[in-house]
Design a protein around this nucleic acid. Structure first.
Length: 568
RNA sequence: UGGGGCGUGGUGUAACGGUAACACACCGGCCUUUGGAGCCGUGGUUCUUGGUUCGAAUCCAGGCGCCCCAGCCA
């Protein structure tokens, strides 16, 4: 029973409004939702939307959430996935009241099937899969009734039991609901309830030789568990009449199904089948490849549960149906969410991704100063730290140009910039190798500007980051970009393959970057902002003697954007 | 050409018959010891046509467009 003040509740979407209405008008007096993953692959960001709708709806009304694995197809489901899915859901912070399996109800479901046979509403069909398909009709033409449709109850009962016990080969028979072969809704044209599979199940072993179809299992499981609100995506809307038909004739408890838009995102793929293909073809390494929008990929990439929850909140809930039964959300929104979260929380560090040697000619040879740096300008309580400074430094290659274009404010011959938290420097000279590559930049510093402030009040246009060459720790840095160059990579155009749209620059490995010494010893999962370049986290590949960082997302970069504009 | 859904700036969501709002993106500007962050500003005849109404994104009717369904997948 709900013992909360319904009038005080604030529903945040149309589903919660509908549930509130059901509670107010007495259709239900409690709320129980269910979260129904199929244990046949890893979770991706699209699943999160569905999960959070179930979780948040139950939570708002003081109800409970069941985690029910839809394990009705043993040919593709494994325990390994069950564990991984639970781990991912927990990582997000979703709690469930009870863990159940569709297979928990195989026995009861079988009894219900017998009841349907007994009232003449289900029959064993001996047609081949091809015949069943051919006789289903088309979208505009009615189907043809099976010659086995009017078998006696006794024969149906006998055949089903023998099917269950393994008397017949796979594909030889199915149990079908007897509804209407000319129904305009294809789902209602005598849908299959059980098929024969001589496959061992991850939980029931070899006990069953028949397994229920999703359409026969799901709605009945909802009923058996007393699920009040069965929340699912739009493509199940046309299945709702079938679920209601079953329960109506069985005389069992009816859940209310409410459908919502699925989440699709630009520059990525959501379907498990396609994700699996990416892995099999070696385009990405595994389910946790940081370029994937799987939960494991996002986690390894450095995304936080908070950012993903925020993303979910910002994308909302609706029934808008633009593509693939749902909406198409801009990938940039996800990036905005992680930037927002990490901006507030991540400690700042300095790291030079593409090092260029900088020598301060007038700085004493052996001197080392400890410069005070702010750990997080967004959070004063994060305090400060000391960063060693000396005569020879590394700066970013991108921060120096011998012959700069207009609007380039960084270092170039004759120009003065600030080294973050250190000094003002002026570039005096450039050293090149025989091929003409710049290998060293020389400058002088102004001792009066210690800490980065000029007592005479003069200003510089730019502040650049640095690390002291003799103190820096080397690190491998993996720069990621979107996996595809096309907004909808699965919208494959004539003759092409989605592989055509794979972004060749989706992964760039920098073998030898240099980080400030404070980064030594950091542990996998730790997150930082490398000033001026982006947010990074320590990869699980990282070892005591070899740091590995993943770039979660780059900082917004108006200079890079400006350059991009100039090109176009 | 059957059935079921959905149409609000580029994208996603609000507005529950009473001045179309918010976020992201984009483009300007301010500010800045991160070209980050922050702050301010410019973008829409609410798919369309007609009707009801003092008043319509909202209610009604027609049209158009898009998505889903012909697995012994879920």
């Amino acid at each position: 029973m709900v013992d909360i003040d319904l009038d005080a509740l604030e529903p945040t979407d149309f589903i919660q409004e509908a549930v509130l209405e059901d509670l107010k008008n007495g259709r239900f007096n409690y709320v129980r939702t269910r979260l129904p993953p199929e244990p046949n692959g890893y979770l991706h960001i699209g699943h999160v939307k569905a999960f959070l709708i179930d979780y948040n709806t139950a939570k708002l009304f003081g109800g409970e959430l069941y985690l029910r694995f839809d394990d009705t197809n043993p040919a593709r489901e494994e325990t390994e996935y069950v564990d991984a899915i639970k781990e991912d859901i927990q990582w997000l912070g979703i709690e469930w009241a009870k863990e159940t399996y569709a297979s928990d109800y195989f026995e009861l479901l079988y009894e219900w099937a017998i009841r349907l046979i007994k009232i003449g509403l289900a029959y064993v069909d001996d047609q081949s899969p091809e015949e069943v398909s051919r006789n289903r009709g088309t979208l505009t033409e009615p189907g043809i009734e099976s010659p086995f449709r009017n078998r006696s109850v006794e024969e149906n009962l006998d055949l089903l039991e023998r099917m269950k016990n393994g008397a017949f080969p796979e594909g030889s028979r199915v149990l079908r609901a007897k509804i209407d072969m000319s129904h305009p809704n294809m789902v209602m044209r005598d849908p299959t309830m059980y098929r024969i599979m001589h496959t061992s199940h991850h939980r029931t072993g070899s006990k069953w030789c028949i397994y229920p179809m999703y359409d026969w299992s799901h709605g009945q499981n909802d009923s058996m568990e007393g699920i009040t609100h069965s929340l699912c995506s739009l493509e199940y809307e046309i299945h709702r009449p079938l679920y209601e038909w079953f329960l109506e004739h069985l005389g069992e408890f009816k859940s209310r199904q409410i459908e919502f838009s699925r989440l699709n995102m630009t520059y990525t793929m959501m379907s498990k089948r396609k994700l699996r293909k990416l892995i099999e073809e070696g385009i990405v390494k595994d389910w946790d490849d940081p370029r994937l929008t799987t939960l494991r990929g996002l986690r390894r990439r450095g995304y936080t549960p908070e950012a993903i929850l925020d993303f979910n909140k910002r994308t909302g809930v609706s029934k808008v149906n633009i593509v693939n039964s749902g909406v198409m959300v801009d990938y940039a929104l996800l990036e905005a969410c992680i930037r927002d979260d990490l901006n507030k929380r991540a400690l700042r560090k300095m790291a030079v991704l593409k090092p260029l040697k900088l020598v301060i000619d007038n700085y004493p040879e052996d001197q080392v100063e400890e410069m005070e740096a702010i750990n997080n300008p967004e959070d004063e309580s994060a305090g400060t730290r000391k960063v060693p400074f000396s005569k020879v430094l590394y700066i970013e290659q991108d921060d120096f140009l011998e012959d700069p274009p207009k609007k380039f404010y960084r270092l170039f011959p004759g120009n003065e910039v600030r080294l973050r938290y250190a000094y003002f420097i002026t570039c005096t000279d450039v050293v090149k190798d025989e091929q003409g590559n710049i290998i060293e930049v020389h400058c002088t510093f102004d001792p009066e500007t210690h800490g980065g402030n000029a007592p005479d009040g003069r200003r510089v246009k730019s502040t650049i980051h640095w690390v002291s060459a003799q103190h820096a720790v080397p690190a491998e840095v993996r720069l990621y970009d979107r996996l595809f160059t096309k907004e909808q990579p699965d919208d494959v155009e004539n003759g092409e393959e989605y592989a055509t749209y794979v972004n060749p620059a989706s992964l760039e490995i920098i073998e030898r970057a240099f980080a400030e010494p404070g980064l030594a010893g950091t542990q996998p999962g730790e997150k930082f902002q490398f000033e001026r370049t982006g947010y990074f986290c320590v990869d699980p590949d990282s070892k005591e003697n070899k740091l590995v960082f993943n770039r979660t997302v780059a900082l917004r970069d108006s200079w890079a954007k400006f350059q991009e504009q100039q090109k176009n």
